[in-house]
Amino acid sequence: MDTVATADRVEKHVYNPSPQGLPAMPKTPFIHRMMRFTGRLRFIFGPAVSSPLDHEMTPENKALLASQQAASQAFITATRPDGSTYLVPRDPDDQSLR
């Protein structure tokens, strides 16, 4: 293994000796070959699928959002003197967290 030092980095090359007597070429690490292959796949197939954020909400999503907002409004956040926080029900008769 040879070490090549340049001004900004040190590179280590692993040489794969050639049985034909040709000059030895540095062996490319597996991770570099895999990243190059997946980059070529992304070039052909495009990036991973992501859904747009500006789509219309379905009635199911609207109902779910309303129920989550109502559940979050049922509690208030109390702060202890040490700075930690905890949830307290707005209704004093609610025993769900106790």
Rank of each mutant, 00 (worst) to 15 (best):
S50L: 04
V4M: 04
T3Y: 07
F43S: 11
R90Y: 03
D54F: 15
S72K: 11
T77W: 07
P89Y: 04
G46K: 00
N16S: 14
F37T: 09
T79G: 01
F75Q: 01
G21F: 11
V88H: 00
M35C: 07
T77C: 05
F30H: 05
A48T: 03
P17M: 07
N61L: 12
S72R: 14
F43E: 12
G39R: 09
P59C: 06
A63M: 07
P52I: 04
G46I: 01
A5C: 03
T6Q: 02
T77R: 12
R42M: 10
S96T: 13
Q20K: 13
E56N: 13
Q95R: 14
V49T: 06
P59D: 15
P89L: 05
T3V: 14
P89S: 04
P59S: 14
F75A: 02
A48F: 08
R40C: 11
A63V: 03
T85S: 12
L53E: 13
E56I: 11
A63S: 09
A71S: 10
A24Q: 08
P52Y: 05
Q73T: 08
A5I: 10
D8E: 09
S67P: 00
K27H: 06
P26N: 03
E56R: 13
H13S: 07
D94T: 01
S84I: 01
L41D: 03
T79P: 00
V10H: 02
L97E: 01
L65V: 13
A78L: 12
P81Y: 02
I44C: 03
P52H: 06
Q68N: 14
A63H: 03
Q20C: 14
A66S: 15
G46T: 00
F45I: 04
Q69C: 07
R80C: 00
V14Y: 15
D2G: 10
I31G: 06
M1V: 11
E11F: 13
M1K: 10
K12Q: 15
D93M: 12
I31L: 10
H32M: 07
I76C: 05
R80W: 01
T6H: 02
S72H: 10
L41A: 10
R90L: 06
D82F: 05
S51I: 07
R98C: 03
L64A: 15
N61C: 04
Y15D: 07
L53S: 13
Q68I: 11
H32T: 12
Q68S: 12
M25S: 12
P29E: 04
V14M: 12
R33L: 14
V4G: 02
L22Q: 14
M57V: 02
L64Y: 11
P92Y: 01
R90A: 05
I44R: 08
T77L: 10
P19R: 11
V4C: 04
A70C: 02
A24R: 05
A7C: 01
Y86Q: 03
T3A: 06
P92C: 02
A48H: 04
I44N: 04
P81N: 04
P17W: 10
R9F: 05
P92S: 03
Y86P: 00
K12P: 00
I76F: 05
L53P: 02
P17C: 03
A74D: 07
M25F: 08
R90I: 07
M34F: 15
A5L: 06
Y15P: 03
P19L: 12
L65S: 12
P52L: 09
T85V: 12
A70P: 01
G21W: 09
S84F: 03
